[in-house]
């Protein structure tokens, strides 16, 4: 599969050259395949956000290289194109909405791209429609729930028609319902619009809906693979400080009690199927 983002020996230091140097990333080699949903997970401070900010050139490597569609982010002249290709949604919806009206906020990105007026309008309509936000288009953000605000932030990125959207813990500040809706939106954008999704999260119930996952610890990529493959490595996952998906926890408990349950279970459906086969 074609890679949309690739990091090669990527290292990054905050405050490089000073006494308070923080080595946030060390020799990270990973890639994002076109069209997939990739989860990046790991404990707080493991370097997820730092890595994500390399994907559209918000940060540039201290050492190594980051390629977006084969363009290096280290070269200034590529940045504009790269920002068009890779959009980013952040954790706190309040700190990324600029305008006091939803539709104007969604228009902010396309306006920055210098697009003609009618195209901006079309894109805003399309983005709002795709995320089912049309009824909110004239609302000020402070009247919206946190989940709705986050959906607006996603719409704002979507209106730039990126090939890839990186979401940096978009659900951390949301209630369960908002969390579910944002996750569903991300999945829908992937399935229906073919947009590559990179989802940073520490909710394992979000991770299991992704095609692949990358586990970070201490600025390094420690595990990579499908959720099924990763969660089978029980000791490794525990060592990374991660939880298990609820179904996997239940399955493990049952196995300990002597039931013959597959060690590969992470989804609720798999657990149900397996339980039904028991007798």
């Amino acid at each position: 599969m074609k890679k949309i983002i690739e990091t090669i020996g990527l290292s990054y230091c905050y405050r490089a050259g000073t006494s308070e140097e923080v080595k946030a990333l060390q020799d990270v080699n990973m890639s994002v395949a076109k069209g997939e949903i990739l989860a990046i997970t790991g404990q707080n401070g493991s370097g997820k956000s730092t890595l994500a900010r390399h994907f559209n050139g918000l940060l540039t490597p201290t050492a190594g290289d980051v390629l977006v569609n084969d363009f290096s982010t280290a070269e200034k002249k590529n940045i504009k194109e790269i920002r068009k290709m890779v959009g980013m949604v952040f954790q706190n919806p309040d700190n990324q909405l600029i305008s006091s009206i939803v539709e104007e906020d969604v228009a902010f990105g396309p306006e920055n791209l210098g697009l003609p007026q009618n195209e901006i309008k079309e894109r805003v309509d399309w983005a709002l429609c795709t995320l089912n936000l049309e009824h909110l288009r004239r609302e000020p953000p402070h009247n919206l729930s946190a989940g709705e605000k986050q959906q607006v932030a996603i719409a704002g990125v979507l209106a730039m028609k990126p090939q890839c959207i990186v979401l940096d813990e978009p659900t951390a500040h949301l209630d369960p319902r908002g969390r579910r809706e944002v996750l569903e939106s991300a999945i829908r954008l992937n399935r229906e619009e073919g947009i590559t999704i990179v989802l940073l999260t520490h909710f394992m119930n979000e991770v299991i809906h992704c095609d692949r996952m990358v586990v970070m610890d201490n600025g390094r990529v420690e595990m990579q693979g499908t959720p099924h493959k990763i969660f089978r490595q029980r000791e490794g996952v525990t060592k990374m400080g991660l939880d298990f998906p609820v179904s996997a926890q239940v399955a493990a408990g049952l196995r300990r009690e002597g039931f013959s349950i597959s060690p590969d279970i992470i989804h609720t459906e798999e657990l149900i199927d397996n339980l039904c086969q028991l007798k």
Binding site: R83, M88, F108, G109, E111, N112, L115, K121, V157
Partner: peptide, 13 residues
């Protein structure tokens, strides 16, 4: 991240 680089080259909806 949303490509803002100042007023230059910006258009309006």
């Amino acid at each position: 991240a949303r490509s803002y680089t100042g007023g230059k080259g910006r258009t309006k909806m």
